[in-house]
């Protein structure tokens, strides 16, 4: 990098500017979270952990954190349960219009999430009177299906169908061949899709925004509302806790499947 940078000064300068824009604002959030003062300002006044305590004892944050976790786990599990069989059918079943079918499963990626959120609010919650938890679960599952289909599809495409046929030829039942041969081949794909799906659902704002309810609110939307009402470091502390959890997830991802692979699956 150093050698490259000194020989390409323009590119290196732009790259440094890019990293500053990506990273520096995040560092400022962390710095203000440790403030001893009462308002969000920089430099922070003194050092204390009081705002972390204020964040984890603040009911709206903790209740919506639990809701967001339930929703993310539920939607990810559903998307995998529905998406993995669909992927297998798309790749292994002899069906006409395979590309079209795959496109259909990927279609939630093309329509803006806020638009999907509006549609679900209007048609399912107002129109059909569904409760917001059911609507959120439906919407998040549909949003995560593309991840399940594309990411597991990528690892399925790498797996040779002949291995499965060999297992069948050696006397394994279709179910056994699937469980002992195909599924282990798919494991990295399923893991990546699950991880991406969980993070996507947990962090989501635009789809969840209109689907809130006093009983069941998601954490990112609760945090957005909080900023409008009060301007103190409690929100910075909560953001820092989310950052710490995300770093843990990122390290797990890097150690197991590798970052680049996980994101390689979703970008065409």
């Amino acid at each position: 990098m150093r050698g490259n940078g000194t020989r390409r000064p323009v590119a290196a300068t732009l790259a440094v500017l890019g990293y500053i824009i990506m990273i520096v604002p995040i560092l400022f959030v962390v710095a203000t979270a440790f403030s001893a003062g009462r308002t969000l300002r920089f430099p922070p006044e003194g050092f204390s952990l009081q705002w972390f305590e204020a964040a984890v004892t603040y009911d709206p944050f903790m209740e919506s954190l639990v809701s967001s976790l339930y929703l993310a786990i539920g939607a990810t599990a559903l998307a995998l349960l529905l998406g993995v069989p669909a992927t297998i059918a798309i790749h292994r079943g002899r069906i006409p219009g395979r590309g079209l079918l795959e496109g259909l499963f990927l279609s939630p990626l093309i329509v803006p999430e806020l638009v999907v959120g509006l549609a679900l609010y209007q048609q399912l919650m107002i129109g059909l009177g569904l409760d917001n938890l059911t609507t959120l679960l439906l919407g998040h599952t549909a949003l995560l299906l593309p991840y399940a289909v594309r990411v597991t599809g990528a690892s399925l495409a790498l797996a040779d169908p002949a291995v499965e046929e060999a297992a069948r030829g050696l006397g394994a039942s279709p179910v056994r061949a699937f469980l002992t041969v195909t599924l282990p081949l798919l494991r990295p794909g399923i893991f990546s899709a699950g991880l991406l799906g969980f993070v996507t659902s947990f962090n989501n704002v635009p789809l969840s925004l209109l689907l809130q309810d006093r009983e069941f609110r998601t954490l990112p939307v609760t945090m957005l509302d909080y900023v409008q009402q009060s301007y103190n470091p409690r929100i910075a502390a909560m953001a820092t806790l989310i950052l710490a959890a995300t770093v843990v997830i990122a390290v797990i991802a890097e150690r197991t499947v590798g970052f680049a692979k996980i994101f390689g699956g979703i970008n065409r």
Partner: peptide, 10 residues
């Protein structure tokens, strides 16, 4: 992987 709210908040 990081929440948009957290990133924008900075």
């Amino acid at each position: 992987l990081l929440s948009n709210v957290v990133r924008t908040f900075g």
